[in-house]
Design a binder for these strands. Structure first.
Length: 498
RNA sequence: GCCCUCAUCGUCUAGGGGACUAGGACGUAGGCCUUUCAAGCCUAAAACCGGGGUUCGAAUCCCCGUGAGGGCACCA
């Protein structure tokens, strides 16, 4: 039997990082078994419709490298994989359930239900779902209501006694008392199905063999199993994935509630936010695979090709977890360090351009070896390379900033003058030549004959940044003219304070 | 309120009765290196939620607590 799994997001307008983890696990499972990974849109809630939502989801999945074999955008019209386009099919099967005595029409309005619910709560009655009032309507009573033109929903007739057991691939058997399962709505009054019906019908006709979905679906799993049973269809294997918690660990990670870390910084929730910050897809994938699952052998960093053969549902940790964001930074940094200078330059360039930097390829490339060990997120390059950006000022320097106890004022002035002369008149202006000249100057004028303190001051003088890439690389990237201008300013500052 | 799930360092995890003085990673602290910041290397602190069982022996199995989370919609 070929494994067929699906990722079926609802069109919220973005891909949630927790959903991305579910998608990743589905994808890994499909790839491991040489099966199919299917992308389907669960868009049966008209109130929630967001324009362009499926494009955003597809873009982010593709960016993450999670390619699907069937579904949205694959060969031919997407219709079969968009639930709103299949309304007729669900209507037929909802009808089938009614005809065969597994479901009934319910004429209670939303307002009535709300009232009764409030009343139950007020009376401190144990809260249960729908009170099943319409379940016992006779055929005649039904006919009267329909003749009156009253709208209705179709509700599933949950068994009133007994137990339903789901055999979860991660958690083992989970037993539910059937009286706990409400008579859930299958078909809404707008004629569209609820998740429960659409999901079961689609999974059946799409031949889904395994359902890997979030923990929050556990409570409705027995309902789904009962629907399969009513239809006489074989239910797929269920595996309920652990939830991704918000940073406080106090609830599901969501855009709306406390997506803030201990320091109060907002934390990323949408995949696009991770991309915009400059996380690499390889890093994000690796990171996500480490949450709820682990590679083994004490290894944290691995390629998907290595991970896929080892992926087993049984190994998934059932406990919910928060995202270790700082570990993502580390991982991303690791992957950035592995990039070739050209590759990194290409990746960093869009971030700089967006910030208005006009940097030529060569200058950028020359900085990459120095940058690769410093970046956690690619966007950090913008601040790091501010001396190349549109804002030329940087930190304001005083004479005091330009001296050091090993290099007092007089010596500093002489050293900077020589440095300026070298930049202005030197035969060569490249990494080696600059290095040689600046070391020599530094060793000559510092009291301990070590270039260090001078180099530090020179770096500050040239980049105007407290934190920046190393001096020589920065000078090359900045170019002779701009470097000269900055050294001249520094000399002037020192002269003026003489 | 009812039902369900879960529980190992701060965090992510390894662990499936003896190999556990509980391993790894991130983070943190200290050190080395050093032109800033990093990177790299070295070192350190840091956990089996509690109580009962079962067993010669429990982080591992069972029960009861406790805590946390999820669900109880004409949302998914």
């Amino acid at each position: 039997m070929t494994v067929r799994v699906r990722f079926a997001p609802s069109p919220t307008g973005y891909l949630h990082i927790g959903s991305a983890r579910s998608a990743l696990f589905n994808w890994m499972f499909a790839r491991k078994h040489g099966g199919q990974f299917i992308l389907r849109l669960e868009d049966t809630d008209q109130k929630r419709e967001v324009a362009g939502a499926n494009e955003a989801i597809m873009r982010d999945l593709r960016w993450l490298g999670l390619d699907w074999d069937e579904g949205l955008d694959i060969g031919g019209p997407a219709g079969p994989y968009v639930q709103s386009e299949r309304a007729e099919l669900y209507r037929e099967w909802a009808g089938w359930l009614v005809e065969h005595g597994y479901a009934y029409k319910c004429f209670c309005t939303a307002e009535e239900l709300e009232e009764r619910r409030q009343a139950a709560v007020a009376a401190k009655q144990p809260f249960v779902g729908y009170d099943r009032r319409c379940r016992t309507l006779t055929a005649d009573e039904n006919a009267v209501r329909e003749a009156e033109g009253r709208g209705y929903v179709i509700r599933f007739m949950a068994p009133l006694a007994g137990e339903t057991i789901i055999n979860d691939a991660i958690r083992g058997p989970i037993t539910f008392h059937n009286e706990q399962i409400g008579d859930m709505v299958m078909l809404k009054s707008d004629g569209l199905p609820t998740y429960h019906l659409a999901n079961v019908v689609d999974d059946h006709f799409m031949g889904i063999t395994h359902i890997l979905r979030a923990d929050e679906w556990i409570s409705t799993a027995p309902l789904h199993i009962n629907i399969y049973a009513a239809f006489g269809w074989q239910a797929p294997v269920y595996a309920h994935l652990p939830l991704v918690l918000d940073p406080s660990g106090k609830g599901k990670l969501s855009k709306r509630t406390q997506a803030f870390d201990d320091e109060g910084h907002e934390v990323f929730v949408k995949v696009e936010e991770f991309r915009d910050a400059g996380y690499l897809p390889v890093a994000l994938r690796n990171f996500l695979a480490n949450v709820g699952w682990s590679f083994g052998e004490d290894r944290e960093k691995f390629a998907m090709e290595e991970a896929i053969p080892r992926f087993e549902l049984e190994d998934i940790n059932p406990a919910p977890s928060r995202l270790p964001y700082s570990k993502l930074d580390w991982l991303n940094g690791q992957y950035i360090q592995e990039m070739e200078p050209e590759e990194l330059a290409r990746a960093v360039r869009p971030f700089l351009e967006r910030a208005g930097y006009a940097v030529n390829d060569e200058a950028l490339r020359s900085l990459m070896p120095a940058m690769s060990v410093r970046l956690k997120q690619l966007r950090e390059a913008v601040d790091f390379l501010a001396f190349l950006g549109p804002d030329e000022d940087g930190v304001a320097l005083t004479a005091e900033d330009l001296t050091h106890k090993k290099l007092p004022h007089t010596e500093a002035l002489t050293a900077f003058r020589e440095a300026r002369d070298f930049v202005r008149d030197g035969e060569r202006y490249n990494l080696e030549a600059i290095k040689e000249a600046f070391y020599a100057i530094g060793e000559r004028y510092t009291s301990n004959q070590k270039a260090g303190s001078f180099l530090g001051l020179a770096r500050l003088a040239v980049t105007r940044q407290k934190v920046s890439p190393p001096l020589f690389e920065s000078m090359v990237a900045l170019g002779r003219q701009r470097a000269l201008a900055r050294l001249e300013e520094v000399v002037a500052i020192l002269e003026a304070s003489g």
